[in-house]
């Protein structure tokens, strides 16, 4: 319709009211999502919250039951062919050919996108992602980290403008994850727009912005700082005793929402206000333990969002 014209050109993803049902279950419910050029947006939410479905709706792998919008200025309902040409989609499960070598997989992708000269594209991509030495290994024999690298290589080779990554670092070791994110940032610096779904909080913190989805509905969005501030949560840390008994006692205090052990420390998270502070300091004093203000983490906020959403759903 007129969306493409009405929005500023730097809106790479602009969708409104996106809805998808499987049978009588609404998996994505009235989702609005905007992503600007060069942004890295983290897409978070519990398992089965609709992250993968939303991503698939944007790149045309699923038909939306309702809603409209554009990706790269093309209508997601009618122009998925054009969107596919300029989008790199990395699936949650490794979905390249395990009985082909790294190089053969990239050759296959290069041919599909009609990249010429093909050898140059493949060589450059192998080089960029450090795959040159392994190019003749079968993809099926690679470890998780290398598979992920191959998948990233394959979806950036055709120089897309939009990258959709669906839990790209699941099952990958920390070093490989860090390298992966460095690469994502380098690509974003070159103007690539990235929408990435993840479960890892440290990864969420590396995004410019985050969007939190639960039960198919977006429940929070903004920078990490904003989301933490908007939650209205306060955190106290009690040092020196991580026992279950103390945790049980803390849970019963007024205003306490979450109690979590961190080694010999206990993090107590609750809604802002006097009740939390009085309760926690009181308990700590009784036991001769030290209690102090802590920083509320994104994880604490997400657990609250998840619990709240669950309560709404039931």
């Amino acid at each position: 319709m007129t969306i493409a014209g009405a929005l500023p050109t730097d809106e790479v993803i602009a969708v409104r009211g996106l809805t998808k049902r499987f049978g009588d279950k609404t998996v994505v419910d009235n989702v609005d999502l905007n992503v600007k050029r060069g942004e890295i947006v983290g897409f978070l939410g519990p398992n089965g919250s609709g992250k993968t479905t939303t991503i698939r709706l944007i790149c045309g792998l699923l038909h939306a039951d309702a809603g409209e919008g554009t990706a790269l200025g093309h209508d997601i309902r009618t122009e998925s062919g054009l969107i596919k040409m300029q989008t790199g989609y990395m699936t949650q499960r490794f979905s390249f050919y395990e009985d082909l070598t790294i190089r053969e997989n990239l050759d296959f992708v290069a041919r599909l996108y009609d990249l010429k000269p093909r050898k140059d594209y493949v060589d450059r991509t192998l080089e960029r992602l450090g795959l040159t030495n392994r190019q003749n290994q079968l993809a099926g024999n690679l470890s998780g980290g290398w598979k992920q690298r191959l998948a990233l290589a394959a979806c950036v080779m055709h120089e897309p403008k939009l990258l959709l990554l669906d839990e790209p670092t699941a099952g990958v070791d920390p070093k490989a994850r860090r390298e992966f994110w460095d690469e994502i940032h380098a690509l974003a610096d070159e103007g690539l727009t990235v929408l990435v779904s993840t479960h890892y909080m440290d990864e969420a913190e590396r995004c410019h912005r985050i969007v939190y989805i639960a039960y198919g509905t977006i429940v929070a969005r903004g920078t990490v700082k904003d989301v933490v501030a908007d939650s209205g949560l306060k955190t106290w840390v009690i040092h020196g005793d991580g026992s279950g008994k103390l945790m049980a006692e803390l849970r019963n205090l007024p205003g306490v929402e979450q109690v979590a052990p961190f080694g010999t420390d206990i993090h107590v998270v609750g809604t802002e206000g006097g009740a939390l502070e009085t309760g926690v300091t009181q308990v700590a004093k009784e036991r001769g333990l030290k209690a102090e203000h802590g920083e509320t983490s994104l994880e604490d906020v997400f657990i609250k969002l998840m619990t709240d959403a669950q309560a709404n759903e039931q």
Binding site: L61, K84, Y89, T91, R93, S95, Y97, E98, L112, Y113
Partner: peptide
């Protein structure tokens, strides 16, 4: 069955 279909569909073929 091997899960490669999703990828094939996401590419312009």
């Amino acid at each position: 069955e091997r899960g490669t279909m999703e990828n094939l569909l996401a590419m312009p073929a």
